[in-house]
Simulated assay, not measured.
Amino acid sequence: MIKLHALKYSRATRVLWLLEDLGQPCERVDYDRTEEFRAPEALSNVHPLGKSPVIEDNGEMIAESATILRYLVAKYDDHSHRPQPGTWDYWRHEALFDYVESSFAPVALKAIMSGFQGREIPEQAQTELDKQLAYITRELGDGPMLFGTQLTLADIQISYLLALLDMLGLLQDHPDISDYWQELQSQPGYIAATEAAGPMAPPG
């Protein structure tokens, strides 16, 4: 059975969501954040960088949420969370899946950290965030998700950042993204994961 090291209010909820979708149980080890909203020292005993999520399977350890999600769909031979291999949609999906942490996260987190610290978001950071959200809106097309009605790994991957942005009121000027986030929250796997481990984002 997969062991999931899950930090509260973190990307670990993505992993639990996918496991719920796959109908796979896990042994979950929960970690509370410090008063400074950081990971506790205990996670450094799990991974040298004190990261979460981390999974353990058959004596091996895997970090990085994107890698974990890919590992799980391969392990359980799941073909329902990606477009058909060999199609252009498949490669568009892979690009969007990697886009979340490589391009979107650095921009979103600049705005998120300002919000967490009670500071006004710098104009340049807001402009960069709006550009990213406009790009995601374009990729959504008619929606309701990135690939129509199919929930994909890319949708699960992007959910954490949307949760934080929504908590800070930063989706208000992007109604299509706000609707998309509401749709993601209605997915059975998301509901089961957050009922089990708590919300993705801390209370506003």
Rank of each mutant, 00 (worst) to 15 (best):
D155P: 09
P188W: 01
K8C: 02
P175G: 01
Q132P: 13
Y180F: 11
R119I: 08
F116M: 13
L146C: 02
L165H: 02
A66C: 09
V54H: 06
L168Q: 08
W91S: 15
I68N: 05
L133F: 03
L140P: 12
I158F: 04
D89N: 09
T127A: 07
T194L: 12
L162K: 00
W91D: 15
S102G: 09
A192S: 11
Y71N: 11
G23W: 04
Y160T: 07
L129Q: 05
D130C: 00
A201N: 01
F104A: 10
N45H: 13
P144F: 02
S52A: 10
T149R: 05
A197H: 14
S102E: 08
L162C: 00
G86W: 00
K75Q: 14
P188S: 10
I68T: 11
W17C: 02
A201Y: 07
L4I: 15
S52N: 11
Q150F: 03
D130N: 04
H174F: 11
Y190D: 04
A12T: 06
I62D: 07
E41H: 06
T152L: 07
I191Y: 04
T194H: 12
A125M: 05
M61P: 01
Y71C: 11
L168M: 10
H81C: 06
I156E: 06
G118F: 00
D78Y: 09
S103V: 07
E27W: 11
I136G: 03
E27S: 08
A74K: 15
Y76Q: 10
E120A: 10
V107S: 02
A39P: 14
I156Q: 03
H5I: 08
I2L: 12
M113L: 14
I121S: 04
I68A: 06
Q126D: 08
A95Y: 08
L146Q: 01
D21T: 09
G59E: 04
K8N: 03
Q150V: 06
E64T: 05
E94L: 15
R70I: 12
M167L: 13
T149D: 14
H81Y: 05
N45L: 11
Q117P: 02
A154L: 05
A95Q: 14
Y180L: 01
L164T: 01
Q132A: 07
L18N: 00
L72R: 06
I136S: 03
P40F: 08
F147L: 08
E123D: 11
P203A: 12
M61N: 05
I191F: 04
Q185M: 09
